[in-house]
């Protein structure tokens, strides 16, 4: 059961670490690199709380064996947060009261960031589709949809 040396770029910083076989990207981020914004809500790709970007695309990091993305570029919510203040999307989540327990928020923001990167002026339908893999049990989604749409305009 050999461990692997993994080299990935995370939020612009080159990281090198040893991973046991089958370590998921989510586990590597949280347990090895100490980046805990991404959450483990289900571990089987059905809740979206672990959503991160790999080479520019939103993925469920709980489904990614870290060995399979050696050399990739990874972005997490920590990487989208400016050194001072908040990103427009973060500010919009604040302004629209789009958080309650907060556990889905990092994944929601990363799913929305991926949408806005490809489509800066999304329709409501686009927004709804973009977050359709992300579960929120508190808000009923409407405030989240509003927060994302507000940035798109």
């Amino acid at each position: 059961m050999p461990s692997s040396v993994i080299e990935i770029t995370v939020n612009g910083s080159e990281e090198e670490f040893i991973a046991k076989p089958g370590t998921t990207l989510l586990s590597a981020l949280r347990d090895t690199l100490g980046l805990t914004a991404a959450k483990r809500g289900c571990g089987v790709g059905t809740c979206g709380t672990c959503t991160c970007h790999v080479d520019g695309e939103a993925v469920m990091s709980c489904l990614v064996p870290v060995e399979t993305i050696n050399g990739s570029d990874v972005k997490t919510l920590e990487g989208t947060t400016p050194p001072e203040g908040l990103s427009p999307l973060q500010q919009s989540f604040l302004d629209n009261f789009a958080t309650q327990c907060g556990f889905c928020t990092p994944g929601m923001i990363m799913a929305a960031e991926a949408l806005l990167a490809q489509n800066p002026s999304p329709t409501r339908e686009d927004v709804v589709t973009a977050i359709s893999g992300n579960v929120c049990r508190c808000t009923g989604y409407e405030s989240i949809i509003e927060a994302i749409l507000a940035v798109g305009k």
Binding site: G48, T51, A58, V59, A111, T129, S132, G133, N134
Partner: peptide, 9 residues
């Protein structure tokens, strides 16, 4: 099929 995040994978 599923969600965009899953369809990316």
């Amino acid at each position: 099929i599923a969600s965009p995040t899953i369809r990316n994978m």
